[in-house]
Amino acid sequence: MKKKIKIGILASPSLSGGNNVIFEHLSHIYKRETFEVILIFDKPVKDEELFWFQGIQKLPRLTLKEAEKNHFDVLIATFWRTCYDLLNLNANHYLYFNQSVESKFYPDSDFNNQNAAEATYLLGLNVITEASWIQKYIKTHYDADSELVLNGIRKENYSPTGESHASKESGKLRVLIEGNIQSSFKNVPKTIEICKKSKADEIWLLTNSPIQDYEGVDRVFSNVPTYETQKIFRSCDVLVKLSTVEGMFGPPLEMFHCGGTAITYNVTGHEEYMKHDFNSLIADVNDDSKILEYINLLKDNPQKLETLKKNALQTAQEWHNWEEASLAFEKAILKCIEKKQPSGQVIHNKIQLLNRWFTETNTINEELKHTHRQLGLKIHKRITSVWKKHKR
Rank of each mutant, 00 (worst) to 15 (best):
Lys2Asp: 09
Ile7Asn: 01
Ile7His: 03
Ser16Ile: 01
Asn20Ser: 10
Phe41Arg: 06
Glu49Arg: 11
Leu62Lys: 14
Glu66Thr: 14
His71Pro: 02
Phe72Asn: 09
Thr78Val: 08
Ser100Ile: 09
Glu102Asn: 13
Tyr106Thr: 08
Asp110Lys: 14
Ala116Tyr: 04
Leu122Gln: 11
Glu130Arg: 00
Gln135Gly: 05
Thr140His: 14
Asp145Cys: 11
Leu148Tyr: 12
Ile153Gln: 01
Pro160Leu: 04
Gly162Phe: 02
Ser167Asp: 14
Glu169Asp: 08
Glu169Thr: 15
Leu176Glu: 06
Ile181Met: 05
Ile194Arg: 09
Ile194Phe: 12
Lys196Gly: 10
Ser198Tyr: 04
Ile203Ala: 06
Asp218His: 15
Cys236Ala: 12
Leu239Trp: 04
Cys258His: 06
Thr261Met: 03
Asn266Met: 09
Glu272Gly: 07
Asp277Lys: 12
Asp277Thr: 07
Leu281Glu: 05
Asp288Thr: 13
Thr307Lys: 14
Leu308His: 04
Lys309Cys: 05
Lys310Pro: 01
Leu313Cys: 10
His320Thr: 06
Trp322Ile: 00
Glu323Asn: 15
Lys331Met: 09
Lys331Gly: 07
Ile333Met: 04
Lys339Gly: 07
Ile364Glu: 11
Lys369Arg: 08
His372Trp: 08
His372Thr: 11
Leu375Met: 11
Gly376His: 13
Lys378His: 10
Thr384Val: 08
